[in-house]
């Protein structure tokens, strides 16, 4: 059973989707799924729905949500920054705990969503496990992608993305998504390699790529988290980077891996 609800967050609301455990029994676990931003969010939308349903089939309830100014939630991109994103994540965690009846939840983030998960007070008693799927690690790197993509497309057409947003001061136009000066500043300052946020009891770093070895930046992050005393598992999943897909895809290997990690059972939904 799935229930969709707008709930208050800050001065506005966020849209939440709660996937109850399918057999109707109390969930064995509950996971909050945190999507990427901008066009990556659109591409990752359905894969995260499929993941939530697969987890619910295995007794793990899930909560998905659209932060303010993204997806179907109220708000505009002008107000989007790390502080609103983190506030919305906190609200989503509370909602997941209320609906599932569980004290602790797991957090799974993809790309920038993974970075937010890593930043969120992980030592809090309410989070028992965080899964970081292909985190950006560095906000500068993301901004570089934004600007490069803009220059390439700009050269191919008359103007596009990653350029100064006309009529707005200091923001960027990322392929039709406005990136506010506040979000740019947050991204410039963001670096998980130097971050000292408290860590969850258990961390799993997941790389998703075409070969069976972890990228150097993610390997370095794993080492960094371990050096801070975290219990970190590293996992490479051979699958498509679904957050970049042009068409509809089902990242089956990724879904299978997460279902196994969170429930210890195989995904048998199909």
């Amino acid at each position: 059973m799935e229930s969709y609800q707008f709930i208050p967050s800050g001065s506005e609301e966020i849209l939440t989707a709660y996937h109850a455990a399918v057999d109707g029994s109390p969930p064995v676990r509950c996971a909050v799924l945190v999507a990427p931003l901008h066009e990556e969010k659109k591409a990752a939308h359905r894969p995260l729905v499929d993941l939530a349903r697969a987890l619910a089939n295995r007794g793990c309830a899930c909560l998905r949500f659209d932060p303010r100014g993204t997806g179907d939630s109220p708000g505009v991109a002008d107000d989007l920054c790390f502080s609103t994103l983190r506030q919305d994540l906190t609200v989503a965690i509370d909602q997941a705990r209320t609906l599932s009846g569980l004290e602790k939840v797991s957090l799974l983030g993809v790309r920038l969503g993974a970075d937010l998960v890593a930043l969120e007070g992980l030592a809090g008693t309410e989070v028992d496990h965080t899964l970081l799927c292909v985190p950006l690690i560095s906000g500068e790197r993301y901004l570089r992608e934004v600007r490069i993509r803009g220059r390439i497309r700009g050269a191919m057409t008359t103007a596009e993305g990653g350029e100064e947003a006309s009529g707005r001061s200091a923001g960027l136009d990322y392929g039709g998504h406005y990136v506010s000066p506040e979000l740019i500043a947050d991204l410039e300052a963001h670096d998980l390699m130097v971050d000292e946020s408290p860590l969850a009891a258990r961390v799993t770093c997941i790389d998703i790529r075409g070969r069976d070895s972890m990228t150097a930046p993610l390997s370095a992050l794993v080492a960094r988290l371990q050096s801070r005393g975290a219990s970190v598992d590293a996992r490479v999943v051979l699958d498509e980077p679904f957050w970049n897909a042009l068409g509809p895809i089902v990242p089956r290997a990724f879904i299978q891996a997460v279902v196994e990690i969170l429930t210890g059972r195989e995904d048998e939904a199909r």
Partner: peptide, 14 residues
């Protein structure tokens, strides 16, 4: 829409 691509991927085009 002058200069725009298939998905109108710029704020002005949108």
């Amino acid at each position: 829409i002058e200069g725009a691509n298939h998905g109108f991927y710029a704020l002005d085009w949108k």
